[in-house]
Simulated assay, not measured.
Amino acid sequence: MSATKRGEYMPLHLVRERLVPQLTEARVNRVTLTGGEPFMHEDLIEVAAAFHDAGMDVGVCTNATIVTDEQIAAFREMGAHMNVSLDGFSADSHGVFRGRPEGFEETVETVKRFAHVGILQGLLCTPNNLAEGEEYARLCAFAREQGAKYVLMNPLGEMGRGAAKGAQKLRQPDEHMRHIAELTLPFADEGLEVVHIRFPNEDKPLAGCEAGTIIYVFTKGEVTVCPYLVFAARTRVSQHPDTDFIVGNVWEHDDIAARLDAYRFHERWTVGDNPTCGGCAMNASCGKGCPAAVVASGQRIGAVDSELCPVVPKQSRVLPVVGVS
């Protein structure tokens, strides 16, 4: 869930009075606080404690640049875990990518502080062309040294941060992404889980969609079965409105648990509902990829996830027809 977003904050009293009770009713047992930057929320510890006191495990995704020792102690006390964004392993890559070259050293030092008290869980990485390929091997080595459980690598795309102005200029080309995978996969044999999300794929069946398994609550209260589907629906070429994937608003509706139970993404939408998937030899073993990527490419859910499908060429973006008269 997003606790902060561009100067907007989830009010503490609403978290306690409306959000926590409704997520409890929806049988949520783990919550991750995201942003924006969660540590900009003046009541972050109290927000996290509200979930913890309700019996939920608490995690935070952070850039780790403004974290105090008192906050670290509080999160350690409640058994929370930290996931830290680290998008290269130098000030010239991670720091510039994040807009603050000095932020690299701040992030590295805070990762060490998290690790020292046993609350570091993983590093979250967005490969970009500001970094040399070897930096990602150094990043994985650093994660292993600090006792992180995993490094998750997710390249820039058409959704989320990838949809921001100019972001596509920073995307690594496919050949570089393959090189990054080759450099970082060996760390998986050394006790570190290395997760490559939407890296180039030449021959493997695609993963399936988990929409509805991991829900997301936006700062303004919208509850979605998948944030990436909402981000994708808000791109210029989308044929889906974002309301296709939003079940309600936790600040306005009192029946969020019932709405989530009734949504059933895979009964509403059929992924891979096209002749190519139907006639493919991998059909039975293929999860058909990411519906959000399909939506972001200008297709309806059911079309081929052509960005990663190994049996079809990558398709050009479908541009919408716009009437002006």
Rank of each mutant, 00 (worst) to 15 (best):
Ala131Val: 01
Asp254Arg: 07
Ala257Val: 01
Pro313Arg: 05
Gly7Ala: 03
Val312Cys: 12
Leu123Ser: 06
Gly59Leu: 05
Arg234Glu: 14
Phe97Asp: 04
Ser2Gln: 11
Lys204Ile: 08
Glu202Trp: 11
Asp87Ile: 03
Glu77Ala: 15
Arg138Ala: 14
Arg161Val: 10
Arg171Leu: 06
Val250Asn: 04
Val223Thr: 11
Phe39Ile: 09
Arg27Gly: 04
Arg113Phe: 00
Glu109Lys: 15
Ala48Ser: 12
Leu12Gly: 06
Val247Gly: 02
Gly323Thr: 11
Asp87Lys: 02
Asn154Met: 13
Ala73Leu: 10
Gly35Asn: 03
Pro275Ala: 12
Cys277Ile: 11
Glu145Pro: 00
Ala54Pro: 05
Leu123Gln: 06
Glu134Ser: 13
Leu308Gly: 06
Leu44Cys: 07
Ala284Asp: 15
Val225Pro: 02
Leu260Pro: 04
Leu130Asp: 03
Ala258Lys: 09
Gly278Asn: 13
Ala211Phe: 03
Ile246Trp: 10
Arg18Ile: 08
Arg234Phe: 00
Asp203Phe: 15
Ala233Val: 03
Lys149Gln: 14
Asp273Gly: 12
Ala181Pro: 11
Lys165Phe: 15
Asp244Ala: 11
Leu170Ile: 05
Thr270Ile: 08
Val84Gly: 02
Lys204Glu: 15
Ile246Lys: 14
Gly248Lys: 10
Thr68Met: 12
Gly287Val: 09
Phe97Leu: 08
Phe199His: 05
Arg16Glu: 15
Ala64Phe: 05
Met282Leu: 13
Lys165Ile: 14
Gly287His: 07
Asp273Glu: 12
Thr213Gly: 15
Leu183Cys: 10
Ser325Met: 12
Ala257Asn: 04
Gly287Leu: 08
Ala131Pro: 01
Arg18Lys: 15
Cys140Pro: 09
Ala3Arg: 03
Ala54His: 09
Thr32Trp: 10
Leu86Gln: 01
Tyr263Lys: 02
Val304Tyr: 04
Val304His: 10
Ala143Lys: 00
Glu135His: 02
Tyr136Leu: 06
Arg171Phe: 01
Tyr216Ser: 14
Val294Phe: 13
Arg100Lys: 14
Leu19Gly: 06
Asp174His: 08
Leu14Cys: 07
Val108Tyr: 12
Glu267Leu: 11
Glu135Val: 00
Val311Met: 14
Arg16His: 08
His253Pro: 00
Lys165Met: 14
Ala167Cys: 04
Val295Glu: 04
Ala292Ile: 07
Arg264Val: 08
Thr62Trp: 01
Ala211Ile: 07
Val324Phe: 02
Arg138Tyr: 12
Leu185Ala: 13
Ala164Glu: 11
Val321Ser: 13
Ser325Lys: 11
Thr32Phe: 13
Leu152Ser: 13
Ala80Tyr: 02
Thr270Lys: 15
Leu120Pro: 00
Phe231Tyr: 15
Pro275Gly: 09
Glu182Cys: 06
Gly88Pro: 00
Val217Ile: 10
Ala141Tyr: 06
Pro127His: 03
Gly88Trp: 03
Glu77Met: 10
Asp242Ser: 15
Lys5Ser: 08
His253Met: 08
